[in-house]
Amino acid sequence: MLQRYWFGDVDEEGCRAAGTDPAALAERAAALRTGMDSFVPIDWEVARDCGVVRTREEYVDLLRSVCTTLARKKIALSYQGRDVELLQMVRMLDELDNVINLLQERAAEWYQVTNPSFSRKYRSLPAKKMLGIIRKGARGGLSDAAEEIDRLAGTRSRLMREVSARADEVMPNTSALIGGLVAARLLSKAGGLPALARMPGSTIQVLGSERALFSHLRGGTPPPKHGIIFQHRRVHNAPKPVRGRVARVLAAKLAIAARLDYYRGEAVPEFLKDAQARIDEAGVEAS
């Protein structure tokens, strides 16, 4: 029975070595497929008798360099997808949001201590305005910090546009249905386009509401109607009685869209037209 190993082919008649160059061996080994039923584990001494190596140490060394070369290639390949960078971009964006909110809150707290007339009224101002007031009113560290937060906010909005544009390009169908930003957030939650494309609509519907979902599964609480997709206007603007339906229909169409994005990689107008109509229809309340 012929056995194909990383160092060569072995059968009853003997062994044909495949050379000793790690790069060439790696390339050959990458294409090998073994049926597990007929598989016989390697006896390293066969590799020695075959003339590939002389000692056990050499055997392990050569095997290590072949495997390392292969692993490096696979790692590079897995980072090559256009979705991989988008993933990092969205996560950076969400972290920035967190950080900016935290800093802003702290700055307001601080400013309030130094300035008694800064009351709740100012707190409800848009962040940008509030920061402006603090920047002018405060001195030293607080003023610097406020300026820095302002700059971060600028970075955030530029990054947001970048994310949106990249999402349009990487996942055109999904983005067309719910907008680039929310599409990118779904991608980030799923862990990549291949993962998102393999998810059922029902999972996509509740991505991002894991806490509510698992508390429901453990018993008692009502199931979540929507996770991240709530951020899309057609879901959060829908009247309450039909919101669950909109979320469900949208998620089902997103599942198809994600597959189109992953396997075809281009916008499919016919699908989008039908899907948009179907989603809009779901949002109409029965009278």
């Binding site: 073994t34 584990p41 390697i42 006896d43 392990v60 290590r64 495997c67």
Partner: peptide, 21 residues
């Protein structure tokens, strides 16, 4: 020097069988 790193899915042993003793 005695670790052989294999990048593969543990549920698909046929992918790394050619390296295994």
């Amino acid at each position: 020097r005695n670790i052989v790193p294999i990048m593969a899915d543990a549920s698909r042993p046929e992918e790394y069988a050619p390296f295994m003793e």
